[in-house]
Design a protein around this nucleic acid. Structure first.
Lengths: 407, 407
DNA sequence: CTGTTAGCGCTTTCAC
DNA sequence: GTGAAAGCGCTAACAG
């Protein structure tokens, strides 16, 4: 349990510095010496002491990945892709860096805790995946933390969540306590229909406008791989509208998550543009689930159909939720898509295999993860804006069809 | 990026030793001093240097989790549960230890590589999840590695894979080069129907016998959380047999994986016990997929039905594969379960929501992960055998029914 | 190309 | 209860 560099050096008849150089490979060493060292390493079964080298080199080969739910393939796919980028570009037979996947469970506190843990380990980079929680206090804390980390040399990449706000340039001293928005509620349960409409003002603008107005290319060094949740949802709703649906329900995810908000706003925007559905009606047809799992879909659909039995189509927060929605509908004796159309979001692997196959919006999770990994490793040069947006794509399948009675 | 213990000490007017003691909390320190230190820590936003403390303390707070496929919920659920155990029993507001989830992609080399990386970081414990690859050479290498690690104080836990063989006690000097079994092939593609029958001899006995015959309680310090893949598969086949099926196809996973072998053997055992199906016939009705994903199920089912059009039931390697099987059947115009029954394995969350709901064997993945985590942390006292077996359970749902013509 | 020499920041005896 | 000091094993100047 204790063979050190010095041992190897002694065995090979060289200094420990030479062994170190051979091992790190970034320094010229004579061929003969090198192989002698390598042999000694082998014979002694020497394994580098990571902490020691991290300490001496003031850097580590750890890359942190924060996910909201590791049991959800959405995150698994992204995390796997990020991790995949750690391999390949290595000298030896495998990855040199280690990916640390941290499961926050969607909890802001844990997010911060893991950030501390990662910082403690002097992680080389950190990728934060999935929707962020929109509590202003937490956002401020997180932004500060992330900026500080980035300033300290840790590469920070957001994947699937909105870019950090611009560093306060003209406004004043700091972003520490941005006044809470009019709607106010922090983490307390928002009223059933409140947060969406109240959030609307900062809405689409906040989600898209700033991208072009960036002064600081790297936004304080924090890079982003963005999904267009808004656009995807809008297109999906347009598809339903085109099919003739007018009573479109929406089973949304947790109200405080950015992903939820953006998708819902896209949906509302399509409705508004079409004009056939009032905002009130849209509101009435929206149900908020507490999470992104199937039971939320199941319960959401029951609630929705109780509230509005005439619903002819249901949009779900994501594919998993859509599965729950389908289950509930079936149980109520409603056929998909003959009686009610259903659509998901994400296009997880199972979605093509459900019965009926799920209409959804495909998010290139694999690609997004890979890009995030590249940005984190510095393999991919970040664009001037600091934001890489990946493309989504409508996947029209069997779960959506024209309504029975034409609307 | 560089506030150190000394800085905090200076600020608090104490020595760095005192600060260290306050922070680690395992040493008496005067209340006044402690709070003074804590305040300084806060004011300076001090974050411990993990590598430095790991080096000095010769230990780290990293826990490694090796998974075959991080995008597969099977592993995500287990990993999440392991990680969950890291929380709770802490002083501060969150986990003190960090879980490092490593995605091996099922590759033996990468498994070894990650083990090295983890060893390099001086991980406190390592949990290896999911089926192992049965190449004798790799097994030997892995076993040696694991034993060495365990001997060096790293806690090793196997979750969902068979226990390590007993350390060679009477046989000789070491387990370094156990003679390759009669069937011989190492990593080369095995013949379509070969490995299973050739593996049969070491079969059920190897899977169950040794458990009771253990002399070394901890098997060289390597603990195991075991699934009864064999028993689950056997019960599932018995269920189908009882329903009246006689032409039962099996779409298996990768041939070289222990999970595949055990499940297949359980299936074969039920068939043999029942007597109505010859071994040849069973062989003919077995198709091997290259992985555990839906496309393997899809292609496997097509192959199977081509080979044996009279098949009335299909058992899949797992739920995900079963999804692909269902898709293929539907595409061929066969209804599930009226024309063909289908069953999976694992009972992943989506399985209850497919249409029809999938008959399967529930594996308590969450519980298994939690147990593995506890063993890894030393929170749970290992049983004398070193092996914790978790219970499985048949989940009979709508995808299985009696065959059309009674057999 | 290789050896020498300082630390990296923390933990931990050992005194006081 | 607290401080002083000696490393933990490695890297990175700096000489040669």
């Amino acid at each position: 349990m204790a063979v050190t560099l010095a041992d190897v050096a002694a065995r090979a008849g060289v200094s420990s510095a030479t062994v170190s150089r051979v091992l790190s490979g970034n320094y010229p060493v004579a061929g003969a010496t090198r192989s002698r060292v390598l042999r000694a390493v082998d014979e002694l079964e020497y394994v580098v002491n990571g902490p020691a080298s991290s300490l001496a080199a003031a850097s580590s080969d750890l890359l942190g990945i924060l996910v909201n739910d590791i049991a959800d393939p959405f995150f698994g796919i992204i995390a796997g892709a990020v991790q995949g980028e750690l391999e390949g570009r290595t000298d030896g037979p495998g990855p040199r860096k280690l990916a640390v996947v941290c499961n926050t469970g969607g909890s802001p506190e844990r997010e911060l805790t893991y950030l501390t843990l990662l910082q403690r380990q002097r992680a080389a980079a950190i990728v934060l995946t999935g929707g962020a929680v929109e509590d202003p206090q937490h956002s401020a804390a997180l932004t500060t933390r992330l900026r500080r980390l980035a300033a300290g040399g840790t590469r920070i990449v957001l994947c699937g969540r909105p870019p950090l706000d611009e560093p306060a340039a003209a406004t004043g001293t700091g972003a520490r306590q941005p006044g809470p928005p009019p709607s106010g509620p922090e983490l307390s349960g928002p009223p059933p229909s409140g947060p969406v409409s109240s959030a609307k003002p900062r809405s689409a603008a906040g989600d898209r406008g700033p991208l072009s107005a960036a002064h600081d290319g790297t936004r304080g060094g924090v890079l982003t791989v963005a999904f267009d949740n808004y656009g995807g949802a809008r297109e999906l709703t347009e598809h339903l509208l085109a099919l003739g649906h007018r009573h479109i329900g929406y089973v949304a995810g947790p109200a405080e998550r950015t992903t939820t908000r953006h998708r819902l706003e896209g949906h509302r925007a399509a409705l508004a543009a079409h004009g056939g559905v009032t905002a009130d009606r849209a509101e009435q047809l929206t149900v908020h689930g507490g999470g992104y799992d199937r039971s939320c879909g199941y319960q959401g659909a029951r609630e929705l159909l109780r509230r509005a039995p005439g619903t002819t189509a249901v949009l779900a927060a994501n594919d998993t939720v859509a599965l729950g929605v389908c289950a509930a509908l079936r149980e109520m004796g409603l056929r998909v898509p003959q009686d009610v159309s259903v659509a998901g979001f994400d296009d997880l692997p199972f979605s093509v295999d459900t019965s009926p196959a799920l209409t959804t919006v495909r998010l290139p999770l694999q690609e997004a993860g890979a890009r995030a990994g590249q940005l984190a490793l510095g393999t991919l040069a970040p664009p001037p804006s600091g934001i890489v947006t990946v493309r989504h794509e409508l996947r029209l399948r069997a779960s959506t069809a024209p309504p029975r009675t034409g609307g």
